[in-house]
Design a protein around this nucleic acid. Structure first.
Lengths: 93, 93
DNA sequence: TAAAGTAGTTTATAATATAAACCAAAAATT
DNA sequence: AATTTTTGGTTTATATTATAAACTACTTTA
């Protein structure tokens, strides 16, 4: 009947992050924060969860003197997103 | 960018309930429990929430000697579901 | 008549999302 | 040059949620 919805992706903010990353080579913390209209704290936590699940890869460096957190979606993340969308389709016709 | 996802519908079980009710005139508790593969407790709670939001209408009666809980989606519920699906589309392309 | 099943509700618990508070460094202001 | 503000985050606390467990009331079956 209905397929399970990956709880890691069934979250507004995490889904937004993944949606953005899917269409880009990479995105940094500030960009994601602006596009998802989230608070830094919430974003930080959700990025960690996606990273721990292996759905994204996080690289910390510096841009000049400022910290720079760069995120990329992984193959596993792409697969998970696709599966999630397919599962969703069992609910929305 | 991304539209808000109605938190009342952004829940696996409640979305499943609404999805079922959308395609039927009505459905009873036992039917919904089987189709959504949920526990009675969880189903009871989630039906109440949908009902309190005005997304469904619940009617309690008896079928012979057994209690019968019949649910129907309301116009408001249909609208909310449609809005939810449209919002989702901003995330899944 | 005792045990098991049906159709639920209520309550407790675990997980989640989110915000608030915090930190270190850099940049801007006085 | 000292103080304030901003930037780019992390950590911790809180409120909400989902879920399961426990319970109720009645019915059916053995």
């Amino acid at each position: 009947m209905f397929k399970e919805l990956d709880p890691l992706l069934h979250s507004q903010l995490r889904l937004g992050i993944m949606s953005l990353l899917l269409g880009l080579d990479s995105a940094d913390f500030v960009f994601l924060k602006e596009k998802t209209d989230s608070t830094a704290g919430n974003l930080s936590v959700q990025l960690d969860k996606l990273s721990e699940a292996g759905y994204i890869q996080i690289e910390k460096s510096f841009k000049g003197k400022k910290p720079l957190t760069t995120c990329r979606i992984t193959k596993k993340g792409i697969k998970a997103f696709e599966d999630y969308v397919n599962s969703l389709k069992t609910y929305i016709k």
